Each structure stands twice: as C-alpha cells, then as structure tokens.
Amino acid sequence: DVEPGKFYKGVVTRIEKYGAFINLNEQVRGLLRPRDMISLRLENLNVGDEIIVQAIDVRPEKREIDFKYIP
C-alpha cells in the first residue's frame, strides 16, 4: 500500500504536458505534475528513467496517486 509522505522508487512510463506518469510496480501508477517538481523540469525526464518520488495524495477509491519530486 502506498502511504502519503513516504518515498518510493518509480519508473517514468509516459510524459504529457500536464505531468509524468510514474509506475511503482505493475499495479501502482501515479502522476508527477510540473508544480510538484523541485529542481527538476518535465523536459529533463525521459521514459524509462528511474526516480525517487514522494506520495503526497493517495485516493485508493479512484486509484489515483499524486507524487512530488524532492532531490
């Protein structure tokens, strides 16, 4: 289970104008929005990159997770 405030290693699987989709595993995916990136820009991410993200909002009923990147 993903818990708000905890850090997780994930893989960038898709990049859109509104953010990057990060997979923690095959069943768990969330969104990293540009506003939640500190010292990292969306255009510097590539599909396949491994990054450490912090879960900031977890909505299991909608199967949605918002992430934050903190270097």
Rank of each mutant, 00 (worst) to 15 (best):
E50N: 13
R14Q: 13
V11N: 06
E43L: 08
Y8G: 00
D1T: 14
E3G: 07
L40K: 07
I15G: 00
I15C: 03
I56K: 12
Y8M: 02
M37N: 06
L42G: 03
R41A: 12
I56E: 04
G30C: 03
R59W: 06
Q54H: 05
R41S: 13
F67A: 01
D1H: 15
G10I: 02
I70N: 11
E3M: 14
E50T: 15
I52V: 14
M37G: 03
F7N: 07
E50F: 15
E61W: 09
I65R: 02
L42N: 03
N44C: 10
P71C: 09
N23C: 08
L31W: 07
N25R: 08
Q54S: 05
V12H: 00
L42Q: 03
I56A: 08
G5K: 07
Y69S: 03
K68I: 07
L32T: 01
D57L: 10
K9C: 10
I51A: 00
A20G: 03
G10F: 03
K17D: 11
L32V: 03
K68F: 09
G19E: 02
I51K: 00
G19Q: 03
K9V: 12
F21E: 05
G30H: 02
I65N: 03
P34F: 07
G48F: 07
E64W: 14
Y18E: 06
G19S: 02
V53D: 00
G19W: 05
L32H: 01
K68N: 04
K6W: 08
I70G: 08
V28I: 14
I22K: 00
A55M: 05
D66Y: 13
D1M: 14
I51S: 00
I22L: 05
Y69D: 04
I38S: 13
E43T: 11
V58W: 08
I22E: 01
R59Q: 05
I15V: 11
V58H: 06
E64C: 07
Q54F: 13
R29Q: 14
E64Y: 13
P60W: 13
E43R: 11
Q27M: 13
K9W: 14
G10V: 05
T13N: 06
E43A: 12
D57A: 15
D1R: 15
N44K: 10
M37V: 04
E64F: 13
R59K: 07
K62M: 12
E16I: 07
Y69H: 07
V47M: 08
D66V: 09
V47Q: 06
V11F: 12
D36G: 04
E61A: 13
I22F: 03
N23F: 09
A20K: 01
R33N: 03
G48V: 00
G19I: 03
L32F: 01
R29H: 12
Y18H: 06
T13C: 06
R35H: 11
R63P: 08
K6N: 09
I15Q: 01
E26P: 15
F7P: 06
Q27T: 15
Y18N: 05
A20H: 01
I52G: 03
R59I: 04
K62A: 11
V11L: 11
L32K: 00
F7E: 05
L24C: 04
A55V: 15
R59D: 08
M37W: 02
Q54V: 12
I38A: 11
E3K: 15
L31G: 01
F21K: 03
Y69K: 02
K6L: 11
P4K: 15
N25A: 12
R35K: 15
V2D: 02
K9N: 09
D49I: 06
E61L: 10
Y8T: 00
K62W: 08
P71R: 07
M37S: 05
V47Y: 06
R14S: 12
Y18Q: 06
E50I: 15
E26Y: 14
I38R: 10
I65A: 06
V53W: 02
G30T: 02
D49Y: 08
R59S: 06
E64Q: 14
R14Y: 06
E43K: 13
D66C: 06
Y8R: 00
D57W: 09
I38V: 13
Y18V: 07
V28N: 07
F7S: 09
V28Q: 10
I65M: 05
V28F: 09
M37F: 03
G19Y: 05
G10K: 01
G5A: 05
P34K: 13
N25K: 06
V28C: 08
V47C: 06
N25E: 05
A55L: 06
D49P: 02
F7D: 04
E50A: 14
K6F: 10
P71I: 05
L32A: 01
P60I: 11
I65E: 01
G30K: 01
N46V: 14
L45T: 02
R14W: 08
N46Q: 13
N25F: 09
L45M: 10
R33A: 04
R41Y: 11
I56C: 06
S39D: 15
F21V: 10
P34T: 11
G10H: 02
E26I: 13
A55W: 02
E50W: 15
R41E: 11
D57G: 14
D57P: 03
D1Q: 14
N46R: 15
Y8Q: 01
V2C: 04
N44Y: 11
I15L: 10
L40F: 07
T13L: 05
R14V: 08
R63K: 15
N44D: 15
R59A: 04
A20R: 00
E64G: 07
Q54T: 08
L32I: 04
E64D: 06
R35G: 12
Y69R: 02
R35T: 10
D36V: 02
I38H: 14
Y18S: 06
K68D: 02
I38M: 12
I70H: 10
V12W: 02
I38K: 11
A55S: 04
D66H: 08
S39K: 12
I22M: 02
E50C: 12
V58A: 06
V28Y: 10
V28H: 09
F67L: 10
Q54D: 01
G5S: 06
V47I: 14
A20E: 00
R35L: 08
D66P: 03
Y18L: 05
R14T: 06
K6P: 03
E26D: 13
